[in-house]
Amino acid sequence: MRYQFLTLCLVFFISAITANATPIAANPDDGEYQEQLKAHFAKKGIDISPYFEDERFEIIETIKKKFTRSAEVKIKSLDDYKKVLRYEEKKEAAASFYAAYKEPLAKAEKEYGISQEVIIGILGVESAFGKYKGSYNPFNAYVSMYAKGYRKKFALAQLEELLKFTQRENLDVLALESSYAGAMSYAQFIPWSINRWFVGNDLYNMENNIYSVANYLAHYKKVTGSIEKAVLRYNPSSLYQQAVLALAKDVEPLTE
């Protein structure tokens, strides 16, 4: 009886606490984020409801981990970073890429003042010269960041830029491909960069990507004062910078 009494008291005590407890905040995945985003874009005259209803829309549950556990965060040495990048494969592929795009590379160098070797370095590291475009969707990526509370302001700003771009170019936003960070095409531009430095209308035209990389780097070379610092504006990781510049150095014999 004593144990039964204690058990009943404990049950009553827990029930009382539960009844008077402050409700737990709603999970951001419960649809509240959709209403917030719908209201935000409605003020801009954009109805994004159909995107949420589309079967291609999905939340990337592990979006935060993809950023916090990226190679640039986890890896400490350039040698290990190069292994993850498959650097030697990119180095070997550079010859055929240069042969195929020798003229636009030379034109970009002349017009923007950025060496074709550095342009090759960027495109090699970013997408293996067009081999990789990303396996995510930029709308899903940025909505996921917003929903999960990871870099919400950045995600919202990129969503605005993304929809500006897709509306201007009359594109299906959910048909686009990107990295988990929402970076698109062979140059891996985020929407903000696309709207400012992408040259041409076709995202998947390699010549456009070559000119766009040069255009972007030319801007930041002027801002920062050096090509080394400009590359860091592409990706703030020193390992990334070193890999790009190493690849640029390795392809110099091709362009001589």
Rank of each mutant, 00 (worst) to 15 (best):
Y51K: 04
L254G: 06
K249C: 00
Y132G: 09
A42E: 13
R86F: 11
Y3A: 13
E72Y: 13
Y150F: 12
G200M: 00
S238W: 13
V213I: 09
Q188G: 11
I17C: 10
E109Q: 11
Y186T: 05
E207T: 12
Y98C: 08
Q241N: 11
L85A: 00
L254W: 10
E177D: 14
K38P: 07
A243R: 03
D80P: 08
Y136N: 11
Q4Y: 13
A99I: 07
F52C: 05
L254T: 02
M184D: 01
F165V: 13
Y87A: 01
Y98E: 13
V244G: 00
D79L: 09
K221F: 03
F12G: 15
S178R: 00
K229H: 08
G182F: 11
K43H: 07
V251N: 02
L217A: 08
I63S: 02
K91D: 06
A21V: 13
V118M: 01
F13D: 00
Y81E: 09
K82Y: 01
F41Q: 10
S77Q: 12
F52M: 07
D30Q: 12
Q116W: 01
T166V: 15
E61A: 07
A42V: 08
A183V: 07
Q241L: 02
D79I: 07
N137Y: 03
I63T: 07
S179P: 15
L78T: 07
G31K: 03
F154L: 15
A175H: 12
K221Q: 13
L254S: 02
A71Q: 12
L174P: 05
A181T: 07
W192L: 11
Y211D: 00
F52S: 03
D80M: 12
S135R: 12
K110V: 10
L10C: 14
